[in-house]
Design a protein around this nucleic acid. Structure first.
Length: 413
DNA sequence: ATTGCTGAAGGG
């Protein structure tokens, strides 16, 4: 629903998209890789240093041990225009450039102050996405490489992901229209999220269906941001979260992938429940995102707010209004979590799973993943039992985790 | 800060 340019770009105005509610009441694995007997041992010491040509980006080289990456300045400074439609190739390029920029900044910062950085600091993240944590559940080491070498993703994989994005967008448009709103500041971008929420609350209150509901909040000291695919009521009148997963093959996912989906929807519930029960404090946006409370909202944003019957002038006014609305609209917490799987090719439903929410388990896993982001522990790759994941990993042949494992195995002393 | 800080999900 929301799409936006880099609001920090000096000259660039960005556009956010806002859903306009329509009548909503009528809206209605692949092959199993059997476990490697020898786990990680298929990698040799010579492969360890043989970085393939594709790992080079620009004029810079990648060294998994020294973690150096350099590139021409004009690349680092390039401002990128964002394409509205999710999953286009321009988006992929944009991600690449962003990754390169981050590494560039990282080097200069490290030189200046010789302090060890937490991953959050290193990648300049004020907050995490729910999906960051989901890829972390698959393989933390792989997630790290995706941050550091975003250009290295397999094209076939991104093709399946782009197709998934298109299907999600089409579904969103079934329940509401989307209009563009120009934003000028980061505060504006968040204001648009708030306005989206404020316009979806009444739909939920009247028993309707909504898609792409923004959720956020503090978890374990870190600000977490996500988007709930779909919220609606079951015939029994329970508030139901539905997450659609489109698949490249007409098969249901294996356990490892289901675990990640379960974690994803559990995080959504954690965040949503927190929002409707008063857990979202306006101050969090200042503390974590360093937004300016008194920031005057942009003209376009104010205009849109007026169209939906809201008169605000500063960021904080709207943040407070949103938090209060969430808390006092008497919205229920999420009762059930559903994941629906469909085949990309023809849209055929492959299955639907109802997942159980276990607060303790989710919080425990969350804590473990956050320990990584806070720099409290080293990066952890997959366990030997899940070494099969490495076979479809783009980073397998440069992976530090794999090489360390195989070294241990070959030279036990 | 010399320059400057993320649409989220996307699938395996």
């Amino acid at each position: 629903m929301a799409s936006c340019d880099d609001p920090q770009a000096p000259s660039a105005k960005s556009t956010e998209k806002i859903p306009e509610q329509e009548a909503t009441e009528g809206a209605a694995d692949a092959q199993l890789h059997e476990q490697d007997r020898d786990g990680f041992s298929d990698i040799s010491d010579s492969e360890l240093l043989a970085v393939p040509e594709e790992a080079m980006i620009g004029s810079g080289g990648y060294d998994p041990f020294a973690e150096k990456m350099v590139q021409p300045k004009e690349v680092a400074d390039a401002q990128v225009k964002i394409d509205d439609s999710p999953g286009t190739s321009s988006e992929v390029h944009q991600k690449e450039k962003r990754g390169i920029t981050q590494s560039f900044i990282d080097i200069t910062q490290r030189k200046r102050k010789q302090l060890p950085q937490t991953p959050l600091e290193k990648y300049h993240m004020k907050y995490l996405w729910v999906t960051n944590l989901c890829s972390q559940t698959w393989c933390e080491q792989q997630m790290v490489y995706e941050f550091e070498l975003p250009a290295f993703l397999q094209p076939e994989k991104s093709a399946v992901m782009n197709a998934g994005s298109s299907i999600h967008l089409a579904r969103e448009l079934e329940v509401h229209d989307v209009v563009s709103v120009t934003t000028q500041t980061r505060e504006d971008s968040w204001a648009v999220k708030f306005l989206n929420i404020l316009s979806m609350i009444p739909v939920l209150q009247s028993g309707g269906l909504i898609r792409e509901f923004p959720v956020f909040g503090e978890q374990d000291g870190v600000f977490l941001v996500g988007v709930i695919d779909e919220l609606g009521y079951s015939p029994k009148g329970e508030l139901e979260l539905r997450e659609l997963k489109t698949r490249g093959s007409p098969t249901l996912p294996k356990a490892a992938q289901k675990r990640s989906h379960e974690f994803q929807v559990s995080l959504y519930k954690l965040l949503f429940d927190g929002m409707v029960s008063g857990g979202l404090q306006p101050d969090l946006f200042i503390q974590h995102l360093h937004l300016m409370p008194g920031q005057e909202l942009g003209v376009q944003v104010k205009e849109h707010a007026n169209r939906v019957g809201i008169t605000v002038s500063t960021f904080m006014e709207l943040a407070e209004l949103t938090c209060l609305n969430l808390q006092f609209s008497d919205l229920p917490m999420i009762d059930s979590l559903k994941v629906e799987y469909c085949y990309q090719e023809n849209g055929a439903m492959l299955g639907c799973e109802v997942l159980h929410f276990n607060r303790e388990t989710v919080l425990e896993r969350l804590k473990y993943y956050m320990e990584f982001w806070k720099g409290l522990r080293e990066t952890q790759g997959v366990d030997i039992e899940e070494a099969w994941k490495c076979r479809m990993c783009s980073f397998a042949n440069i992976c530090e985790w794999r090489t360390s494992k195989s070294t241990v195995k070959k030279r036990p002393r």
